[in-house]
Amino acid sequence: MSVGHVARVFEAAGLPTITIAVAAFAGRLEPMQVPRLLLTPFLMGRPLGQPNDDETQRDVLRTGLRLLETAVATPTVAHY
């Protein structure tokens, strides 16, 4: 999963990142120590929720942005 490597490269360049993924991938992502990780309870391939569920998708994105603002240490793992 190259997402962890990409996140670290962006962070090293001064660009803060948040990785949003389904909880099924926690076992793979947590050891990678991505800087900020938001795990969601949704199905694989739908980390933001069901198609056309705009309210939930916006809420997941807002949660990710709050994590980006409030995380005091990296790596940080949060659950939606």
Rank of each mutant, 00 (worst) to 15 (best):
R8M: 10
A71N: 03
D54W: 06
D54F: 09
P75K: 02
E55D: 12
M1E: 00
L15I: 15
E69M: 11
M32G: 03
A21W: 02
A71M: 07
H79D: 05
H79N: 07
R28V: 15
L37H: 05
A13T: 11
R62S: 13
L43Q: 12
L43H: 12
S2N: 10
Y80F: 15
A7G: 07
I20P: 06
A13C: 11
E55I: 15
L39R: 11
R28E: 08
T70L: 09
T40N: 04
M32V: 11
V9H: 02
D53K: 05
E30N: 08
V34Y: 01
P31C: 08
Q50W: 10
A7T: 10
G4T: 07
P75T: 08
M1C: 02
P31Y: 09
E30M: 14
L67F: 06
P75D: 03
T76P: 00
V34N: 00
V3F: 02
R8W: 09
V3H: 01
G27R: 09
T74L: 04
G49L: 04
V22Q: 07
M44A: 12
F10S: 07
A26T: 09
Y80P: 06
F10T: 07
V72F: 03
G14A: 10
F10Y: 09
T76G: 01
T56G: 02
N52I: 12
G14M: 07
V77F: 05
M1V: 14
A24C: 07
T63G: 10
D53R: 05
H5C: 03
G45L: 05
A26N: 08
A24Q: 09
A12I: 12
M44Y: 08
L61N: 05
V77Y: 04
A7P: 02
V3P: 00
S2C: 09
P41R: 06
A21S: 14
V77E: 01
R58V: 14
I18G: 00
H79K: 15
I20M: 03
Y80T: 12
A23K: 13
A23E: 06
P47Y: 00
P31S: 12
A24T: 13
G49M: 04
Q33T: 13
A24R: 08
T70R: 11
A7R: 01
E11Q: 13
N52R: 15
S2V: 14
I20A: 02
P51C: 05
N52Y: 13
R58P: 11
I18C: 06
P16R: 14
R66C: 04
L65A: 12
P47M: 02
M44D: 12
T70Q: 10
Q33P: 00
G45K: 11
F42T: 08
V6M: 06
P47I: 02
R46N: 11
A21M: 08
H79I: 15
R28K: 14
M32Q: 12
Q57P: 09
P41S: 08
I18E: 00
P35L: 04
R62C: 11
L29Q: 02
T63F: 00
F42I: 12
F42H: 08
G14D: 07
L68E: 02
T17A: 03
